[in-house]
């Protein structure tokens, strides 16, 4: 097993473990903190896969911004008396989703679609590194999705203001 594989398996299992703790912990704020750990582990996985820019974005946006958003929502709603059983799951739905996920993973690994060398053959030095490659792809080939992303952000912003406004 290569060092990259070792690091990947450590990070992946830590991410899964903290993800389980997100739904397992009784305190919602603790769940949010475990979510930060999950996001950070996923960022580490991105680094192992040689996607440094995505890793930085993962830390800045998800571990930073999104979790702050979650914490604000936790602080907005009244949580007293809502701490019921540890995990409330709909058995049928979770069984279907779980089986589908396992089937998908088995299918992908059986068809050889899994990248077992963890991006070791990816060499972006010709394009000047990861960030340059992302920049070039984003602003030439993926121009339309990029502009649509700004509309998405606009909708999020206006939606939040409309929902939270006090005067109608």
């Amino acid at each position: 097993m290569t060092p990259a594989a070792v690091v990947f398996y450590i990070l992946a299992s830590l991410a899964l473990l903290s993800a389980v703790m997100v739904i397992w912990s009784r305190n919602v704020v603790h769940s949010a903190i475990y979510l930060v750990l999950t996001f950070l582990c996923v960022a580490g996985v991105y680094i192992v896969l040689r996607a440094e820019f995505v890793a930085a974005v993962q830390v800045l946006v998800y571990a930073g911004g999104i979790v702050v958003l979650f914490l604000f929502v936790i602080m907005l709603v009244n949580l007293a008396g809502t701490l019921g059983p540890r995990v409330r799951v709909h058995a049928t739905v979770s069984a279907i989703v779980g089986c589908a996920a396992v089937a998908l993973l088995l299918y992908v690994s059986a068809s050889g679609g899994l990248d077992t060398d963890f991006g070791a053959r990816i060499d972006l030095s010709a394009q000047g590194g990861n960030l340059q490659a992302v920049g070039w792809a984003l602003y030439s080939d993926y121009l339309l999705p990029f502009e649509i992303a700004s509309l998405l952000l606009l909708v999020a912003m206006i939606g939040a203001i409309v929902l939270a406004r006090q005067k109608y």
């Binding site: 911004g65 604000f72 700004s150 999020a156 912003m157 939040a160 203001i161």
Partner: peptide, 14 residues
């Protein structure tokens, strides 16, 4: 506070 948080995330992504 929620509006401020959403605005922060939006301009963070920007």
């Amino acid at each position: 506070f929620y509006i401020i948080a959403v605005l922060f995330v939006v301009f963070d992504v920007e």
